[in-house]
Amino acid sequence: MSASPSRLDQEWQTFWLAVSFLTRIPLPIRIDYSQQRMNNSSMYFPLVGLMLGAIYAGVYLALGALFSPLVCVLLVMILHLWLTGAFHEDGLADTVDALGGGYTLEDRLRIMKDSRIGTYGAAALVMALGLKAALLLDARSIPMALLVAPAISRLTPLLLMRALPYVTLSEQSKTKPVASGFPGTRLAVATGIAALIALTATPWMPGIVMTGLTATLGVAMLWGLYLKSQLGGYTGDALGACVALSELVLLMGCTV
């Protein structure tokens, strides 16, 4: 009879489960999946964002010897869309389509599940990607902005998961296992991780702590209130949208 995995081994698997949920990066280990582990994996969202940010910053610096900053930023953004499967951007487009084109709760949830993209979603996606590129080019330190923005912005959906109920038309939603039963203690740890990342980046971007607070708490509160009025809670797509919105707010702060 095999011994039970240690607590460290369990957390290591939980971290990689978060990686598999948010990215397309191949897993280097075998994961013993469970509902509880899936719930707990949300704690590592900021760390997964930091891992992605390290990749983006490293690639940007490597490309800098060959291309202009604009080309480097666009290539890194393409890499981001590939590594994440445009996970959050898809959520942004679907959510804007639903909130812009649906007149009832049922219509909004149905539109959100539709794989096709509409005018509202396409416009939001184009503007968000264009604004992201412009803000990165204006950032005090492009590599540092690429490093910290993905990490801090991934705290925002955790705040929404604690504050709002989950709503969906389908019981087979990918996000539901993550949204169910996320412990408050693990939210506190995730918040601490994001705060530590912001404090570490402060010498390069002095306003990053206040910017991070605004991006996470501000977006979570305003976006959460809007979702509460329109949907009665949040969906997986709405969580993806809040990451994209939080990242844009954070990048705005990186330019001043």
Rank of each mutant, 00 (worst) to 15 (best):
P157V: 09
I208V: 15
T202M: 15
E106D: 02
Q230M: 13
S180E: 14
L52Y: 04
V243M: 06
A194N: 11
L109F: 05
V76K: 12
K228R: 15
S42V: 07
G102K: 07
A57I: 06
S115M: 08
L222N: 11
A195T: 14
Y33Q: 11
G181R: 09
S34M: 01
L164H: 07
N40P: 00
I193E: 06
L136S: 06
R186Y: 08
L63H: 10
M38W: 00
C242H: 00
L61H: 09
T185W: 13
S41N: 01
V148W: 07
V167A: 02
S2T: 12
C242T: 15
D107Y: 00
G224R: 06
A134C: 04
L147K: 02
D90K: 00
M51D: 03
A3H: 12
Q36W: 02
R116S: 13
T211F: 12
G101K: 12
G184P: 01
M51S: 13
L47V: 13
R162K: 14
I25Y: 03
A86L: 04
L250C: 08
L251F: 07
P28W: 11
L66H: 07
T216Y: 05
V126N: 01
R30T: 13
L47Q: 04
A195K: 09
Y166T: 00
S246R: 09
Q10V: 11
F182L: 06
L50D: 01
S4G: 01
L146Y: 09
S246G: 14
V48T: 00
G218K: 10
M144S: 12
P165F: 05
P46F: 02
L160F: 05
A241Q: 05
G85C: 08
F182M: 02
R108E: 03
G101V: 04
